[in-house]
């Protein structure tokens, strides 16, 4: 126990020194119009991301967890401007990239990349591995042919593929191998920031750890900053320093990993944590600590979210206020933010 506290305090101390903000997200919203009727007029909005603010520090991994439909992938795509935000501000290294056109964003793409979930859909099957990895370099156009070939060889080795794999095509690889190709494609530009959009959830469990470890190693080597999107907390725990929990387009809680896993504040986080299956050898202790919280019902429609706190319809601790006021994300402890009325008095 004592060991743990010193470790975490040490960790925080080192972080204090180099807390340099890489990405600053301010009140970002993404509403998708819902069109209907004969004239295709907008009859409503799907609030995929609704007023989200947070920062990502240089060199860290921020995990984002949420059910499918919670808007986490949309959020990721907003950050690297694959989607245009409806409102809000996105600062990348203090530069406002919110309203840049695709042409203007192009130079920034060198510094921010994405690894997609499905390794079968995210690689163009008609291109060889070499073509796939070379494409970002050609598009960004900073290197000549020989430099590109050298860079490809270097990155191929780094992600654990063989140089002879260059001439192969995606259909000749397994899911895990394909994901390595995706990672190589993302990292060949030597970006600063990589969005990992559920990079392991399509893989076999036995391969997941391999790919996660690879990503961790590469992070150390290249000094990468990750935004790691996942739908369960166990994968995120492995790789993140801080974890954010998303529910219906909004942030429910954001905190350093250990704090979040040991002392979750938001009822939703508690429910998510209790749903992680664990093999606990110390049975008595686990019974005391882990009460199973079951959430009833489904995720409400983001087109028509509940009033007040969006989680109230499934929250075991909901009270009257939750239906009226929308809880804002507030710092309850240091670095521990939560959006819940249960902590209004703190």
């Amino acid at each position: 126990m004592t060991l743990k506290t010193t470790e975490s305090s040490q960790f925080e101390a080192t972080k204090e020194v180099e807390k340099e903000i890489l990405i600053d997200v301010q009140n970002v919203k993404k509403y998708f119009p819902i069109k209907g009727g004969v004239l295709k007029r907008t009859i409503g909005h799907l609030k995929a991301v609704d007023d989200v603010s947070f920062t990502i520090y240089k060199g860290e991994t921020l995990g984002i967890v949420g059910e499918s439909g919670s808007g986490k992938s949309t959020l990721g795509r907003l950050l690297i401007r694959l989607l245009d935000p409806t409102e809000g501000k996105i600062l990348f290294q203090e530069a406002d990239i919110t309203h840049l056109t695709q042409r203007q964003v192009r130079p920034y793409r060198q510094d921010m990349q994405i690894v997609f979930q499905d390794p079968f859909a995210s690689l163009n099957s008609k291109m060889s591995v070499e073509q796939l990895i070379e494409e970002p370099l050609i598009v960004q156009g900073r290197l000549d042919r020989n430099q590109r070939k050298a860079r490809i060889l270097e990155i191929i080795e780094k992600v654990g593929l063989r140089p002879s794999d260059r001439q192969k095509y995606p259909h000749e690889f397994s899911g895990g191998q394909r994901q390595r190709i995706s990672i190589a494609r993302a990292l060949v530009l030597k970006p600063k920031f990589v969005i990992c959009d559920e990079p392991v959830s399509a893989l076999d469990v036995s391969i997941q750890a391999q790919v996660l470890n690879l990503m961790k190693d590469l992070q150390d080597e290249f000094g990468l900053t990750y935004l790691f999107i996942a739908h369960d907390l166990s994968v995120v725990k492995h790789i993140s320093e801080r974890v954010a929990v998303m529910y219906l387009g909004r942030l429910a809680e954001i905190a350093p990993k250990n704090r979040l896993y040991e002392n979750p504040l938001h009822p939703y986080t508690k429910a998510l944590l209790s749903s992680i299956p664990v093999i606990d050898l110390d049975e008595d202790a686990s019974k005391v600590k882990r009460e199973k919280i079951k959430l009833s019902g489904d995720l409400p429609s983001p087109a028509n979210p509940p009033s007040g706190c969006t989680f109230r319809t499934r929250c075991p601790q909901a009270h009257e206020r939750c239906a009226i006021d929308r809880p804002e994300l507030r710092e309850i402890e240091e670095d521990h933010f939560v959006a819940c009325h249960l902590y209004d008095n703190k």
Binding site: Q102, R109, Q113, F116, Q117, E135, S182
Partner: peptide
């Protein structure tokens, strides 16, 4: 709607490419 097209956008590929 395929992801690899989104991937091409993510590296900054132009429409023609």
């Amino acid at each position: 709607e395929q992801e690899f097209v989104l991937g091409a956008r993510a590296i900054g590929a132009r429409d023609s490419r």
